[in-house]
Design a protein around this nucleic acid. Sequence first.
DNA 1: ATGAAAGCGCTAACAA
DNA 2: TTGTTAGCGCTTTCAT
Lengths: 347, 347
Amino acid sequence: MTDSLSRVRRVTIVDVARHAGVSTTAASKVVRNAAGTSAQMRSRVLAAVDQLGYRPSAAARALRGRTYTLGVVLPDIRNPFFADILDGAAEFLADTDYQLLTASSHDDEKDEGRVTEAMIDRSMDGLLLVAPISSRKRLQYFARTVPTVVVGWHGPGADYDIVADDDFAGAGLVVAHLAGLGHHRIAHIEHHETDPVRLAEMPNARRADGYRYAMQAHGLAEQIDIVSTTYNREGGYLGTRRLLDRPASGRPTAIFAGADIVAMGVLDALTEAGLSVPGDISVAGYDDITFASLGPVSLTTVDQAGHRIGATATRLLLDRITDRSRPASQVTFSPTLVTRRSTAPPR
Amino acid sequence: MTDSLSRVRRVTIVDVARHAGVSTTAASKVVRNAAGTSAQMRSRVLAAVDQLGYRPSAAARALRGRTYTLGVVLPDIRNPFFADILDGAAEFLADTDYQLLTASSHDDEKDEGRVTEAMIDRSMDGLLLVAPISSRKRLQYFARTVPTVVVGWHGPGADYDIVADDDFAGAGLVVAHLAGLGHHRIAHIEHHETDPVRLAEMPNARRADGYRYAMQAHGLAEQIDIVSTTYNREGGYLGTRRLLDRPASGRPTAIFAGADIVAMGVLDALTEAGLSVPGDISVAGYDDITFASLGPVSLTTVDQAGHRIGATATRLLLDRITDRSRPASQVTFSPTLVTRRSTAPPR
DNA sequence: ATGAAAGCGCTAACAA
DNA sequence: TTGTTAGCGCTTTCAT
């Protein structure tokens, strides 16, 4: 009796071998495109695979070889910049047997560790860690356990490749643009971070440094004005509230948020205060997330080329899976400025 | 010699058993919280687990039991509504051993099939299919292969549970709101779909039906005005262009987009045309994605309670994993209207 | 309550 | 080129 709920036993490589009249080894070789198979055997096995609808069990493979699965750990599914990275990675893998599986750390260091461990437990062939907040030591450990590429992070790394954007230069582009428009009082909203080691590793710190350097280069050293909050929408809102609470003469004429998601909070606060952009105040962000281009937003920002970052990181990861002892490389992309309507000369 | 790249052999349950001086069977039982273990044995095994840093291999488990992994297939990482669903699911699983792994189908039926198969190959204990576009037959097949819950889809299903929003009612809320403000010419932008079976299953079709019904109920049958495009930002843009190309007398005073992501495109087109919202035209969406609340956007929309949907779907999935023959249930949530500044009485 | 042994599906080492 | 065999780490009978 075979009712609608009866489980169908999965077709295994033994079934394929029997159906094709060859050994399981032979079938395995053909399936994996390994060397040492005759054309005749190939065609017979492939026919059996097709007829029986055979699909290899990743779990069984994991116990012996690879799983053809790459794990991506993201801090936050909601930040559309990360979606660009994922797209680039997925596109690069389109014609391979590899499958991308993603998990979110919800911007939490503990969760990030948990999730990464979970991926290792699940025999991922490689890991893509996007903007991680784990300590360098922890990253080292991950990288020694499984091939790893770190994306959007600036620490040195011997065991993993790094792909990142030149955040220092990107911040400079924004300051140059605003200064060129005639702004002097340009405030910067950055992520508050006290740990000195981490400070040098996170992209936000690089952006803040780039801002400082560029302000000096433009003769605006006196005007350097940094508000430290958190790198999310609420942080942008609160930071802006703080700026607006000052007497009018101390308010900036332009705000450079360290990330578009932060700029969203800036816009929330400005809208609430009844201020117009760019009429009353100019706003710039960083990342060029999808919503930056939205008609009513039209945010001037920095394009990090997330797509290219994702594709490059994936290429490096596959290389590293092939040859684990390959020396680690660090790829840095140059960002470009995207000028939109949220910035204009000051009143 | 142990250089920095030497692979450390993973601790196995055999190591744990030996270290604790018990059988592997016993160790396994303790690790799994299975019945039939003395308190003394428990403590010894758990101590060994702790000291050795043992973590079970999901791959090895998969060959015998479960993997404690749930797969989520989403059409599009970029739609923040899906992030709400993920959050709800992740929160529900927070104190369990289960891990959520996500993959995107990029709004493509072929990819959706590929990705879902890939998850089955990887021995997921259960599948959460969000707003799938695969045929019902295909979904049935998936559900018979692995415990499955379908989210945001309206077809009947014998083998899988369904959790969805009452899209028909939600659309009614929007029409009632706009009609209450005094609008008569209310246009609706929907997803173009010709397949009659699929038409009844997709949420967008329910919303279009709800729109039609509500327009009639408000005595506006003559004003029913539907533009068919695609359910993404570009679709919203193109649909709005079509509406704006009409002579002024034929233009709507309000546009109800079938999804917030579509409303984004509507706003793009209106901004480009130099029209103000809600001054010249009111706009409403559906989903209440994060960016709908953004200051410069402030979109009136329908809250689908993605968080609750995700949590409920996950609960049902765990139930189904425990008891596969449990009859399928269908849960429908009532949406609520979120009124913001993008809607106002017509001129 | 505890343990011995078989076996999940696959691949790699080895033999023919 | 092809096949035989062992074993990856775990859970599950089935004895004891």
